[in-house]
């Protein structure tokens, strides 16, 4: 059970904790070109708050009890720590240059940050606010994932086209695996012990067996009438049972629904323009996708796989996180 809880925390920030304080919950969306966060009330599907952040906010995640929000303010070269109740920035964490994405370890204490301009991964202790380690990785690190047991962190580097496997104890790389061009996002699964990595320009998701770091499968996409080079997978999310994956396809303006057991695409859902990332509603019945170019969020009904509604947010919405 402990493992299950950890996994949910890593793939879906603040997942399924019984101490939920908001009945319906909220979706927090970073607006890259507005330096703000739009807070969407899941029940009313309205933007209920707009909160200022540092420059170019992208990655966003809550800690496990939802009391703290971490924001990658890329152009401020900082990770900001916010009290989500007040919207007040409490302090900045030292993050290295140009933080883009990060992942919070299951211990709720170590934040692993990809420094896009610097080809390093920075580990910060959120309590002492000190940098614990910096690990050299490939050019333009971006995707960050932590294994359910917290023992492995993976950084993907966009120009080097690799997943770098880091031993979190030794804080050293123990394996490097090639993926297709421009890897953007990575997630571990628990039940199948897999690592999934999306490659934006390669147009694929590579699935690795975690035990051997060997490639296990490749997910490919195809939409009639859309040029193959526009099918660019970026963010993706697993349903809690890990049987289905929703994959944002960037400028193809669709979200793919992938069967995680057969690696086949089952459906494509039309959303707004240039879809980046997504977050589930707290009850996992709805999925909220950030659409960068159209500046809105599409709400998808998970059961019927139909888009329900678009919600206008700020300019270039990028990251999304669920507040329970």
């Amino acid at each position: 059970m402990r493992l299950a809880a950890i996994l949910l925390i890593t793939t879906l920030p603040v997942a399924a904790l019984p101490t939920a304080t908001h009945a319906a919950g909220e979706i927090w969306v970073t607006n890259e070109k507005d330096d703000t966060i739009s807070v969407i009330d899941v029940e009313t599907r309205q933007v209920v708050r707009t909160i200022e952040t540092g420059e170019r906010p992208r990655g966003i995640t809550f800690n496990s009890d939802g009391s703290r929000l971490y924001i990658c303010a890329s152009d401020s070269d900082a990770v900001q720590v916010m009290d989500p109740a007040t919207g007040e920035i409490l302090h900045d964490l030292p993050s290295g240059d140009d933080p883009e994405q990060f992942v919070l370890a299951p211990d709720d204490r170590h934040l692993w940050i990809a420094n896009e301009d610097d080809a390093v991964t920075t580990v910060v202790d959120v309590e002492t606010r000190k940098v614990v380690a910096q690990i050299n990785v490939g050019i333009e690190p971006e995707g960050m994932a932590v294994s359910p047991d917290g023992k492995i962190v993976v950084t993907t580097s966009e120009t080097t086209n690799m997943a770098h496997w880091i031993d979190t104890g030794k804080k050293e790389i123990f394996a490097n695996t090639l993926v297709d061009s421009r890897p953007r996002h990575a997630e571990f699964t628990k039940t199948s012990n897999e690592l999934w990595v999306s490659s934006e320009i390669g147009g694929t998701i590579t699935v690795f067996d975690v035990a051997t770091q060997a490639e296990k499968a490749k997910v490919r996409f195809e939409i009639a009438g859309v040029n193959a080079d526009l099918l660019q997978p970026v963010g993706f999310k697993f349903t809690p049972d890990e049987k289905t994956v929703f994959v944002a396809l960037g400028p193809a303006n669709h979200v793919a629904v992938v069967n995680a057991e057969t690696y086949e695409v089952e459906d494509y859902i039309l959303v707004g323009r240039r879809v980046w990332h997504m977050a589930f509603s707290p009850d996992f019945t709805q999925l909220f996708t950030t659409n960068g170019v159209s500046g809105d969020v599409t709400v998808i009904d998970v059961a019927s796989r139909q888009p329900l509604e678009s919600i206008k947010v700020g300019r270039f919405p990028w990251g999304a996180a669920t507040r329970f």
Partner: peptide, 10 residues
């Protein structure tokens, strides 16, 4: 062959 050329398409 697919080169990432930072121009939105391979």
């Amino acid at each position: 062959f697919a080169l990432d050329g930072f121009k939105g398409r391979s």
